[in-house]
Design a protein around this nucleic acid. Structure first.
Lengths: 156, 156
DNA sequence: ATTGAAAGACCTTGGCG
DNA sequence: CGCCAAGGTCTTTCAAT
């Protein structure tokens, strides 16, 4: 499944365009990469079928709808039993306030990016989810002053 | 600009659907939320105009195209002069390998999520970008074993 | 792999409840 | 606000190259 699919310059261009704006029409992409609409359509279908192009997601301005606080949680876990850890990671990753979960090496075991309404909301998540599980040894919280997310393809 | 826009149940439903799959057709969304296509189209246009719906981005399987290594960098900065820091954050956020940058309180000042080809690539970024700037006091690197990103709307 | 043509589906607007 | 209807545009398929 992790087999390296080879992309030619046209595939890369298509992916780059769609990564920037998934709402581009097929006609627009075709024009941008210098292909007929039908050929471009084939390319996109193939990229989807090969599992390179996974889907598309709208970007919502969470701040504008009342989610004004973002935080990063550094979680240290106890006795790393694979199954228990995986369960906890899974349940964490599906909390609606959670945007990203990283299982990492180093000082912390889990890094969790959350977007919440306010401090009270943040406190609730930490105490009701993280401090409730025995796997969790300690949670360190950092407030996010500014966060930037990039939607670009890395260069070949 | 950070004024809370109020969303009714229908707007929320639309955002939730598009967050999950930005390639849903207007007709599909309309059916799902129980509106006529034209009404649904109006809603989406309004959400865009109000700055709630910012855009859409395709999700690419980076692993499948040779970007097999992900890491989180914890960066400590020196003397926090706003201008210098902002410049560095900006230049960091636009590196093609960088997916997310968080400016945070706490032990680190910057948390950077990068996706790279391999260890050599990672080393190159750290030594050529981070260790080149005087603002950077220290970089701690964590390898990402597993990362999950969620594309859902938080509940009202 | 790429193309053009054709059919059908969809988006999009404007006028009206 | 929401709906219907109509025109214009785009997607999607397919046979041919």
């Amino acid at each position: 499944m992790a087999t390296g699919t080879d992309l030619d310059r046209t595939d890369s261009a298509i992916l780059r365009l769609l990564t920037k704006d998934a709402w581009l029409s097929n006609k627009q992409i075709a024009a941008a990469v210098g292909l007929a609409p039908s050929s471009c359509h084939e390319r996109v279908k193939s990229l989807r079928a090969r599992g390179v192009l996974l889907g598309a997601h709208a970007e919502v301005n969470l701040e504008a709808i009342g989610f004004a606080l973002e935080a990063v949680l550094f979680v240290q876990l106890g006795k790393l039993e694979v199954e228990v850890v995986d369960d906890f990671v899974g349940s964490t990753a599906t909390l609606p306030e959670v945007r990203h979960v990283f299982l990492v090496s180093g000082r912390s075991d889990l890094i969790v990016d959350v977007v919440v309404r306010d401090m009270q909301h943040l406190k609730a998540i930490i105490s009701e989810h993280f401090n409730r599980h025995d796997v969790v040894l300690r949670v360190e919280t950092s407030v996010v002053f500014d966060s930037r997310h990039q939607h670009v393809m890395p260069p070949p």
